[in-house]
Design a protein around this nucleic acid. Structure first.
Lengths: 321, 321
DNA sequence: GTGAAAGCGCTAACAA
DNA sequence: TTGTTAGCGCTTTCAC
């Protein structure tokens, strides 16, 4: 059932049908009678416009690309739900891509999105190996810089609108909690890749500790890979306050840590809710990541940007709770 | 940069360009010279075909719709990665939709996918309120039944290819473990909605217990909502072996359960990995859900079905580990 | 108020 | 081996 058949059924031209069905009946001052007739027939026949054909003309595909450099477990679903919650009621649809933390895939997926003519992109960027600077996708070109894009969760070198977490503040909050608990030796635990979120949390944490008279020598930083090494575990074991940038990472270290240290004498903190928190036999404080809100805010910001291409960049920061 | 410009640059017709760039140079016996020339120019100019225009002709959009009735936490990201891993190297792209467990949204999203002319759909269906039978989406029509579709995780009333978990076997495995542990009073814990996965796990569990001489009166079933009621908790407290169809659900009950019962005297089992499993002060056995594999298998099955529309239905069952 | 006609970028039947 | 021509379903001038 297409516009042509409808027009035949109604005895009007395809273009009149198009006008009515695009909601432009008023604009073109189409008579109520014809408009109603067309709408009725279209409804009865279950007409659905072909968005491919429409997009070919309008250069709008009503698709939003969502690119995750890696899937962040709980995260991804929540962010997605947030995005969709905001997009619901609009005609936009989400295309997703995950990149398994590979920079080649990351670049490729960005290109694929552009090829698909997405109207905008939400990007959770890659965390690079330590020391490597964030870089523009290799194939960065004009078309890319023209597509509206919101960066979430981590900074990238792209100069775009952003929705971030208040990572520095989170580190600060944790440090303050540790200080109240009269701790003396501190550790910071993060995964090996470098991302702005982890760096921000570390900075806020270390800064606050130092400001309160803690010496650098009493603050250890551990950046661990898939499996923590014995050396890393023993570094952690010396601390009586451990802040991990990532709950899953912390938990994966605990089973080894408990072999060489009494866990109850340590204060823990980490980012990301832990399901079994209240029956866990440790003193753990977790900060929740507002993932869904991040999705919603990112979608909101992206739609706004699509309407307002000339406006200055916006940066939103969401507190961890 | 479109096919027309390329053709002008090469001094050939658009259709020759189209043939070469679609990889059909051989098929149409286009001379090596022209083919090479076209490829070179296209490459130099960074030509990217417009897939909208192509799809309008071919009636293939090279998109796969992925519909999640609800986001299953960890699950969603893993399934998505599995799907994408299989789709990588093909030209297919994934469109996703989540439905927040709402049956209205679920129907709507299915319609949107069809409207988008996806080439195939992977569907994680809705779990309905207790007693309600699974139903076809309200707007089920011809076009829908024509779109290839693979159902994952839970049965639906749709008669389609499926990738499921071996739920019955999982229940059986758990029951056997409990029996070895000389347990006497058993419980099964599930969320309130009814889905085939939960029913299968329950059936395998109860069946095996009964087969081993356990009386019905010694097997309790608890179907709980968001928050377990005191009554539900006290039912659970009577058991010395508790199998939950869902780890998160189990954990959410434990904090209350521990107030009225010594957790160490209970054997627990549940489906879904628990991060902190080895430092958790309970006797818990978890079965892992092969979510990524499910994604991969579903994608594989869907592509196969798209190629083989006439073949009989296939049902794949993935063991929980 | 409505319609005719051109065209979005590409593919495919039919010629040559 | 290549080109001509006619669309795919829709939007959009421009004309009446």
């Amino acid at each position: 059932m297409n516009i042509k058949e409808i027009s035949a059924l109604c005895g009007v031209s395809t273009c009149t049908v198009s006008r009515v069905l695009s909601g432009d009946a008023k604009k073109y001052r189409i008579s109520d009678a014809t408009a109603k007739k067309i709408l009725k027939v279209a409804d009865k026949k279950g007409y659905r416009p072909n968005y491919l054909a429409r997009s070919l003309n309008t250069r709008q595909t009503f698709t939003i690309g969502l690119i995750f450099a890696n899937t962040v477990d709980f995260f991804l679903g929540r962010i997605l739900e947030g995005v969709e919650a905001h997009l619901r009621g609009t005609d936009y649809q989400t295309i997703v891509a995950t990149c398994e933390n590979s920079s080649d895939l990351y670049d490729e997926e960005i290109q694929r999105m552009l090829y698909r003519h997405v109207d905008g992109v939400i990007l959770y960027p890659l965390a690079l190996a330590g020391g490597v600077k964030f870089s523009l996708p290799k194939t960065a070109g004009k078309s890319e810089s023209d597509t509206p894009c919101v960066v979430i969760g981590r900074h990238s070198s792209l100069d775009r609108d952003e929705v971030m977490f208040c990572d520095r503040e989170a580190g600060q909050t944790v440090a303050e909690g540790f200080l109240e608990g009269k701790r003396r030796r501190f550790a910071f635990l993060a995964p090996q890749g470098s991302c702005s979120a982890d760096r921000g949390r570390e900075a806020g944490y270390v800064e606050t500790l130092k400001k309160n008279g803690i010496k650098t020598s009493a603050i250890a930083t551990v950046r661990t890979g898939e499996k923590p090494t014995p050396k890393e575990i023993s570094t952690l074991a010396k601390a009586d306050a451990i802040f991990s940038t990532n709950s899953a990472l912390l938990l994966s270290c605990l089973s080894e840590l408990k072999e060489i240290r009494d866990l109850l004498s340590v204060k823990f903190a980490s980012v990301g809710k832990v399901e079994a928190e209240d029956i866990l036999p440790i003193d753990l404080r977790t900060l929740s990541v507002p993932a869904r809100a991040m999705g919603t805010e990112a979608a909101k910001l992206l739609l706004w940007r699509m309407e307002n291409p000339g406006e200055p960049l916006r940066r939103i920061c969401l507190p961890l709770v």
